[in-house]
Amino acid sequence: MSSRNEILKRVRAAQPTLIPMPADLTSTAAGDVHKFTEVLQGIGGRVVLMEPDEEVPQKLKELFPSANRVVSSIRSLEAFFLHDHAQLDHHSLEDVDIAVIEAQFGVAENGAVWVTEQDTIIRVLPFIAEHLVVLLDKASFVADMHQAYQRVAYDAYGFGVFIAGPSKTADIEQSLVLGAHGPKSMTILVRS
């Protein structure tokens, strides 16, 4: 705490007279799954549209036939749900092949989905798994980040994150490699 008052004093003396805050930028464009799909594919993710009669567990088996450990933060996915999440050592998720979570909405302009701690229960879950699967409703798309923040402007989350595609790096001679530290793939299951 020692330097707090000194810094604030210096900043107060240095800052210019108040410049007004600009009015917000707004947008009225509509977000849709097509634009979202196109953008997400461009950054290494994929979108799978589910038929009304399809079930998530079957779909997972179809998409990831060799997966061993599948876990989920979605209660209705009984077989995968992390029932012991309250006692679980989060490090033990290290060998998860597929994490299945639900997102609140997707952003068409950049292929990102918004997820909070309430959705993942365990913060590290969408980062530590080898592959990430995200459930999203077909109606849950906004056009851009302005609309996205209108939706979450006053949410009281402890942790929230926009996720756009698999973890990646291009640090070695600008060659794109998917799966830097987090998931090597990201699949969005869109329910109609």
């Binding site: 953008v39 990102a112 980040m145 302005h146 402007a153 994150v161 926009f162 996720i163 756009a164 987090g182």
Partner: peptide, 25 residues
């Protein structure tokens, strides 16, 4: 909500991506 402005600019300016893979709050 000002993040809407900055996150739209940051990754596009940095690497030409529409947004970074993770924007963690």
């Amino acid at each position: 909500r000002h993040l809407g402005v900055f996150l739209r600019l940051l990754a596009r300016s940095a690497t030409g991506q529409p947004v970074t893979t993770y924007s963690s709050h």
